[in-house]
């Protein structure tokens, strides 16, 4: 964890305190193809891509997605809560072939000894109707960040089989910094904590967490003790990635990453360090209760 965390700067901005600025992180260098000489380097080393990188993408971002250089989000957003210049999904210049859309369907691929790829590929464009993002315009009052009582009940399994659920709540268009700032301000006022949920709509583990988050016990803990902000990492948005990188080194953390902030904006718990909770009702409720500020 960095000593000078810009998230604290965000919190400080919300609380009217002095802020420290985020540090720039070196980008993955380009290189020529070369034979692999070793395979046993540490995970962290591999994640940086340096020792064994054959030909990293030019101007690739920490996720490995090629993307144009985008100025880092200011550590302290504007007082209005708006985040200027926030990019939408699909703006990164990915090295990805175009192709026809394959209709998402429930399990249709039989198990076997060999499987066959479809003939075409299609770039995934995540939806933009995330629950929290939809409920919370940038700059809105912090109490709106509490999703516990406002979350709709999950659809029955039969419905789920029929209708694809392309979105589980991570909004690629959300002004995450503003949402976090508002949540910290609300937490400072009411003594609750802030739960940051970094994930992506394509992420199966994130879906499992989402299911658990909608269970009654977990909803009760969330309503009692947390302001929740979901941050989308599925669109490789550089600003959202920069937020995640404040809590774990790029390329080393998995999704979902749950971070609990104290009412003053300091980090109370981080699943990248403490380990992931189990995504079932009792275990997740216990984890949230364990780390709740009150």
């Amino acid at each position: 964890m960095r000593k000078c965390v810009s998230m604290v700067a965000v919190a400080s901005a919300a609380l009217g305190l002095a802020a420290c600025s985020a540090q720039d992180r070196p980008r993955e260098p380009a290189g020529a193809a070369q034979p692999l000489s070793a395979r046993a380097a540490s995970h962290a080393d591999h994640a940086q891509g340096a020792p064994l990188a054959a030909a990293p993408a030019a101007a690739s971002d920490p996720t490995g997605h090629a993307a144009p250089a985008v100025p880092a989000e200011p550590a302290v957003p504007a007082a209005s809560g708006a985040v200027p210049g926030q990019s939408g999904p699909g703006q990164g210049a990915r090295h990805e072939p175009a192709g026809a859309v394959v209709a998402p369907v429930p399990v249709l691929i039989p198990s076997g000894t060999t499987d066959v790829a479809p003939h075409s590929a299609h770039h995934h464009a995540p939806g933009a109707n995330g629950a929290i993002g939809a409920m919370l315009p940038a700059g809105e009052a912090a109490p709106a960040l509490v999703p516990a009582s406002a979350r709709p009940a999950p659809p029955p399994p039969a419905q789920e089989r029929q209708a694809p659920e392309a979105n589980i709540g991570y909004d690629p268009n959300a002004a995450a910094s503003a949402q976090i700032m508002n949540a910290v301000a609300a937490a400072h006022a009411d003594g609750k904590g802030v739960l940051l949920d970094f994930g992506a709509n394509w992420c199966t583990a994130c879906r499992a967490l989402d299911k658990a988050m909608h269970t009654p016990k977990v909803q009760a803990v969330l309503a009692q003790s947390y302001h929740v902000v979901q941050v989308d990492l599925g669109s490789a948005d550089s600003q959202h990635m920069a937020l995640a990188d404040e809590f774990a080194a790029a390329g080393t953390f998995g999704m979902p990453m749950l971070v609990v902030l104290n009412p003053d904006g300091t980090v109370r718990a981080n699943s990248a360090l403490t380990g992931q909770p189990k995504y079932e009702e009792a275990a997740l409720a216990a984890w949230l209760s364990q780390w709740a500020p009150r």
Binding site: T63, G64, A121, W202
Partner: peptide
């Protein structure tokens, strides 16, 4: 061009999309 995503039951790592190897 190489694409993949690694997951466990508890977490998914960031997907790699169209990583070029020249």
């Amino acid at each position: 061009l190489v694409s993949y995503a690694a997951c466990s039951p508890q977490e998914c790592l960031m997907p790699v999309t169209g990583h070029p190897v020249d």
